[in-house]
Amino acid sequence: HNLTITQGKLFFHYNPKLCLSEIHKMEEVSGTKGRQERNDIALKTNGDQASCENELLKFSYIRTSFDKILLRWEPYWPPDFRDLLGFMLFYKEAPYQNVTEFDGQDACGSNSWTVVDIDPPLRSNDPKSQNHPGWLMRGLKPWTQYAIFVKTLVTFSDERRTYGAKSDIIYVQTDATNPSVPLDPISVSNSSSQIILKWKPPSDPNGNITHYLVFWERQAEDSELFELDYCLKGLKLPSRTWSPPFESEDSQKHNQSEYEDSAGECCSCPKTDSQILKELEESSFRKTFEDYLHNVVFVPRKTSSGTGAEDPRPSRKRRSLGDVGNVTVAVPTVAAFPNTSSTSVPTSPEEHRPFEKVVNKESLVISGLRHFTGYRIELQACNQDTPEERCSVAAYVSARTMPEAKADDIVGPVTHEIFENNVVHLMWQEPKEPNGLIVLYEVSYRRYGDEELHLCVSRKHFALERGCRLRGLSPGNYSVRIRATSLAGNGSWTEPTYFYVTDYLDVPSNIA
């Protein structure tokens, strides 16, 4: 807008934040220059609390790290170098490059900038070799853009010569660093050979998330399962459950009422301010606690030095998902009996873990797994792929695949051998790939016309006998059925096997 004052003059007093240069501009645009008398524009009460600059400061050096910015700028000295009290560095987070010096300023003089007072450097006698002032900004957020400017702080001049310097606002972004852990990993099994893994992005990506790394490792069953005799009275049979499938998407929606109208769909109840505040506090606490764990609990591995020492970490090797089922080394339970199943799973520490690289999504279907087997899954978020990966501390989750139908069934015939004193040795093959492992066998036998009897055969007993022995049988026709019990439950009964026990007292003698 054009402003013209045809008559009258300007009068400025007691404006401590208004620089004289701005008042002189007002004289020019209003056409009143030359009308004012000496005392109409006070030299001592206008701009006496402001830094009124008329020179431009330029930054000469900028260096960044993930949490620091090192700045240096060209030296500046007023005509009387004693008038320079120091520099004021202003900075704040700036997602967009549209910041002005006066953003967030209120009537009390406060604003949204963080201000650092910096002492002037030592003055050199040689004007050509003056030290460049600077400042190291610490405690910054990774991968965050900051708006920065600097200006001088000078003393009051009796001659009211307006001098000083100020830089333009520059924008500097800190470097990326390792992201925080992925949030809320959930693993479920939808079949006997697959596990579905879902997660949420890290709360602090500290860069642009480029991919996720998912490692999985087959877990050995508890050692007590191999040692305890679950045929003993009072000892509860062990059981394991597989990871249940995901709930429906509708039930997972946030901010939804727990109660549904019987007449149909209901609208979600909005969260109160107290609920939102509580969630923010919980989120802040979780982030602080995660940072504490990362800094205190997890110790970084030592990389190899120039002395030739090897990095103890196993090298990563990509495998196809079809090879995942046989990740671990199978060892027989008892070496003397080769027909026992290889369900003991000690994992070799030198073995390469299978892994998958996930790009542009937060889910993965891990296939080719062994049925009813526990897996430990390790999830890392990465925001750099080359020249070397920059990934987060791992988040861990466990899951067990679903049982395989008929995996616990005894394959092959049940054979028998009759000894003296009416002892019958029953023999059968253990299931080759049971659900988890076989903890015991149930032997059901009966003599024709009598009630059915049951015998429990422990895992250890089966390994020693290759089956079991029935003792003290009365003469007669017998039928026997056997079924295995694994961590997933009972298998199917075998087809009945028949044998006849004679009275050993009636056996004919070869003595003449």
Rank of each mutant, 00 (worst) to 15 (best):
E433L: 02
H211P: 01
E417G: 08
N208Q: 15
L277P: 08
S486V: 01
Y292R: 07
L379S: 01
S248F: 15
E247F: 13
S239H: 09
N383P: 02
N510W: 07
V329K: 07
G264C: 04
S344F: 04
G207R: 02
K236C: 07
R471W: 09
K432V: 07
R286L: 06
Y500N: 14
C456F: 02
H461D: 12
T307R: 14
C391Q: 03
A405L: 08
R318S: 12
R313G: 03
C267R: 00
D229W: 03
C267L: 04
L505D: 08
V296W: 07
I438Q: 03
E282N: 02
M427W: 07
S474Q: 11
E258M: 03
R447G: 02
M427D: 02
Q252M: 03
D229E: 05
S274I: 01
S305P: 14
T272R: 12
F215R: 12
S315P: 10
S257Y: 09
S248H: 02
T347N: 04
K302L: 10
S344K: 07
S251P: 13
T288A: 09
K432D: 14
D408T: 01
P349K: 14
S341A: 05
E356D: 08
K460V: 15
V424E: 02
A330H: 14
S315Q: 10
E442P: 01
A407T: 10
T347I: 12
P270S: 07
E351I: 11
P496G: 01
I377S: 03
E404P: 02
E420G: 05
N208G: 11
Y375R: 01
M427F: 14
F372P: 00
N339Y: 10
M427N: 01
C456S: 03
H425Q: 08
H294V: 06
E465Q: 15
L487E: 03
S486Y: 00
G306Y: 10
P387D: 08
K236Y: 14
S243V: 07
F246C: 08
I418E: 12
K271R: 11
L379D: 00
G449V: 00
R218T: 12
S363Y: 09
V393L: 04
S367F: 09
W216F: 14
Y292N: 10
G476C: 00
F499V: 12
S344A: 09
S274F: 01
N435R: 01
Y441W: 00
G467T: 04
C269I: 13
S474I: 10
D222W: 14
L473H: 01
E281Q: 10
E452D: 12
P413T: 11
P338W: 11
G322I: 11
L369R: 02
S320Q: 07
H416R: 05
R218W: 02
T502Q: 05
V443L: 09
L225T: 11
L437A: 11
S239F: 07
P205H: 05
V359G: 06
K271H: 05
E388G: 14
P245N: 03
K271Y: 07
